[in-house]
């Protein structure tokens, strides 16, 4: 297999007596969707936070495109091209869709200390932003305040913001959460396309989406990865069935 974009090596994180991440090693390769599943409290969110830089591991290393990023903060990791979305929709509620995506374009450009030209008239921001908004099918919503969007639209906006970062890898934390069947189906189609932009590490509860999208699946239970494999392998695994799928499927 090709060199991994993202390479977690023996990550460990404890909160007091609780081991939230227990010796986790995991890779994300170009062009793939690697799904991370596991029951509530398995430590999925902690792992995402370790990768995005919001939390620091007690031990272990994270390499991103061959470079150790352990010392970098979340903003620096985002600038390297590690784009994350949040479990709870995280947009700027008072901004329009366009302004939200412009902010992401601006972040990726690394040039926030510009003071004179109105951002809304800065074509280096507005044009890429419009492009990404159209990409997720939100072209008609560009001037609507994010606070007025439906849940599904807000999820799409987040994807547009992630795209605007011109990412080298996506970290998507439950993008389907709270979506109706139809919305989930639409988003599945968008995500499936996204993998050509950059590989995706996908944390998701919606098993239909995971089985439809994932090239590989890792199963996290009590902070430990108990199995990694293709959809078929995971479906067939006794250990996974016992630990997780047994009560879900």
């Amino acid at each position: 297999m090709s060199e991994p974009i993202l390479d977690l090596h023996n990550l460990r994180k404890t909160f007091g007596a609780l081991t939230a991440t227990d010796d986790v090693s995991l890779t994300l390769h170009p062009g793939e969707i690697h799904a991370l599943i596991g029951p509530n409290g398995a430590g999925k969110s902690t792992l995402i936070k370790l990768i995005s830089g919001e939390l620091r591991p007690d031990s272990g290393t994270i390499r991103f495109e061959g470079q150790a990023i352990d010392r970098l903060g979340p903003a620096a990791r985002a600038r390297l091209g590690l784009a994350r979305s949040f479990q709870v929709s995280a947009v700027i509620p008072g901004f329009t869709v366009l302004e939200n995506v412009m902010l992401a374009v601006q972040g990726a450009s690394g040039a926030s200390f510009r003071f004179l030209r109105p951002a809304l008239r800065d074509r280096a921001l507005t044009e890429p932003a419009q492009f990404h908004i159209a990409h997720v099918g939100m072209g008609t919503r560009a001037h609507m305040p994010a606070a007025d969007l439906s849940h599904g639209e807000r999820r799409r906006l987040e994807i547009a913001m992630a795209l605007a970062l011109r990412p080298r890898a996506f970290l998507l934390d439950e993008p389907m959460a709270g979506m109706g069947t139809e919305g989930a189906r639409d988003l599945t189609a968008i995500l499936s396309e996204l993998r050509t932009e950059a590989p995706i590490l996908l944390v998701e509860h919606d098993m239909d989406a995971v089985f439809a999208l994932a090239d590989r699946i890792s199963v996290l239970v009590y902070g430990r990865i108990i199995a990694t494999g293709t959809v078929a392998e995971i479906r067939a695994s006794e250990a996974v069935r016992a630990a997780y799928l047994g009560d879900a499927a």
């Binding site: 949040f86 902010l103 003071f115 109105p118 809304l120």
Partner: peptide
């Protein structure tokens, strides 16, 4: 008026509303 409409202002106003989102797009 000029400052708050600029890129700098966009980031400043965004950070007021959702700090972690601003970090996630790579702005400190």
């Amino acid at each position: 008026a000029v400052l708050t409409r600029s890129r700098f202002g966009l980031a400043l106003r965004a950070a007021r509303q959702n700090e972690s989102r601003v970090v996630a797009v790579g702005i400190r």
